[in-house]
Design a protein around this nucleic acid. Sequence first.
DNA 1: CGCCTGTTTGATCTACCTCAACTGCTGTGG
DNA 2: CCACAGCAGTTGAGGTAGATCAAACAGGCG
Lengths: 248, 248
Amino acid sequence: MGAVCDLEPDVPGLARACAECVVRNRAVCRVLSPDQLSELARMSVTREYRPGQVIIGDEETADFVATIQSGAVKLVKTLTDGRQQIVGLLFASDFLGKAYAERWNVTAEAATAVRLCGFPAKHFHEFLSRHPALEAALFAAMLDELDSARDWMVLLGRKSAREKVATFFTRLARRALDNECSAGSGTAVFELPMGRGDIADYLGLTIETVSRQITALKTSGMIRILPGRSVMVGDVERLARAADGDSS
Amino acid sequence: MGAVCDLEPDVPGLARACAECVVRNRAVCRVLSPDQLSELARMSVTREYRPGQVIIGDEETADFVATIQSGAVKLVKTLTDGRQQIVGLLFASDFLGKAYAERWNVTAEAATAVRLCGFPAKHFHEFLSRHPALEAALFAAMLDELDSARDWMVLLGRKSAREKVATFFTRLARRALDNECSAGSGTAVFELPMGRGDIADYLGLTIETVSRQITALKTSGMIRILPGRSVMVGDVERLARAADGDSS
DNA sequence: CGCCTGTTTGATCTACCTCAACTGCTGTGG
DNA sequence: CCACAGCAGTTGAGGTAGATCAAACAGGCG
C-alpha cells in the first residue's frame, strides 16, 4: 500500500489516462503491466458525481465497476421505515463494485464530489478472467473490506458514543498521515468527508449525539475544528486510546 | 445452494471420506470433480472441537483452513477491556479460514460441538492455484460473508433489541427450513446454537435484555421454547415482519 | 441432596434518543 | 447593503430503551 508520494516519475508506454492517474500505484490496477493497463484503459470511462448523488441504486444490477479517483463514496443500507446505516466508506484508490456478484444490495452514494474511473462490468469481467494477478488483487481488496466491516461491527455493537466518534476520527487521521507521508509527527489534519447526519448513520447514532461528542472531544483538547470541514488531531495515539475505551 | 436432501445417492469414484460427507454438495468443494475431490481428500484431516474451544486464536497465523461438517463456529472480536462482539457465525458447509490472508484477526471458537474437514493452508493454497473453479467458489463465499456482515451492521447500528432478537431467530428459522426441505409450511423448529451470553455478544446486547426479549416474543406467541435448546417458530413470515420493525 | 452453571425476573440507573429552540453561515432578492 | 430564508450544526430539557446490579429459579450432576 504505497502512499501517494511513492508515485514513480514516468513509466514508458503507459496509457495517457493512467499516466496522469493519481491513484494508479495504490488502486487494484497497480498489479498490471503497462501493456495490460493500456488495454484496460481503453475501456475506461471517467464519471463524475456531485455530493449526495446515487452512483448505484439498491435494486439495480451493477452494470459497471470502477476505481475511485477522488472523493468519498458511502455504501448505504436502508430499512423499510427509513432508518439507515452506512455500511462502508470508500476513498480514492478503492474499488467500487462487486466483481462476480449479480446483485448489488447496497446503495452507493457520493459523499463528496466524486470522480470514478469506470469500466463496463461485462468487459471488465472478461478482462479479469484473463488476468489472474488482477483477480488476486481484487480478492485481497475484498478481504480487506470484510475485515474492516468486522471491525465496524465491534464498534456498532459494543462501543460507547464517545468511543465511536473517537474511532471514526482516528481512522481518518491515520488515513491522512498515510497519504501525506508526514513521517509520524503524530499530528494530522484532514477534511471530514461528510456532514453530521452521515457520520451519525455511519456510527449508529443520532446527529445530536455526534455533535455533542465532537464538542466533548474538542473541549478535552483531543481535536480542534478548523474553518471549513477540517479537523486537526494533535496526538493521534491519544485519540486512538480514547477510541478503545481508555477513559483518561 | 441445494438443501441436504438433494444429496445424490452415489457417485462412482468418490473418495470415501467425501462420499460420506453430509455437506459435500453444499460446501465449496461441490464444484470439484470426483477426481479432484479425491486429491483434495487425501490431504484432509478431520478435527473435532468441544463447545467453547478455540479453533484459531486471534494472533495466530492461520496454518490451516477447513470446511465445517457439523456444528456452529463463532468468530469473535474482543476489545482490550473484555467487551466482545461476535462478528460471524458459521454453520455446516461453511468455509472457515481466509484463503490468501496472512493474518487471521478474529478468534474462531466452537459454539457447539464442531467437526471440521481441515486442510493445511499451504497445500490448500497450492491446490487452489490449480483449480480456478474452487477459487471462484471461495470468492463467491467471501462475497456472501461480506454481504451478511453488512446486513449485520444494519442490525447492530439501527435495530431495537426486539428487532435484533427477532432477526436472529428469523435467520435460524429460515436456515432450518432450507435444510429440512419442509416445503414452505411456514413453521420451523431449530436448535439454538449457543447460550444467551453468546446471543448477546452476537446482537450487541446484554444477557438480560436478550432473555427479556425472548420471553416477550414467547408471550406474544411468535415463538415457543421447547425442552432443551429448541425453538419453534409458528409463522416465520410474521417473525420476519417483527424483525424489520413492523410493530404489530 | 446440595452445588454449579445458565436463565429468568425485578428494581434502579444512565447513556443515548427525542423534541425543540437557538446559532451562525451562505445565498437570494428587495 | 441589509433583510431573510434555508440549511447545517449546536445546545438544552426531558423521556426511554437498554444497561447494571441483584436476587430468585431452574435443571443437570456429583
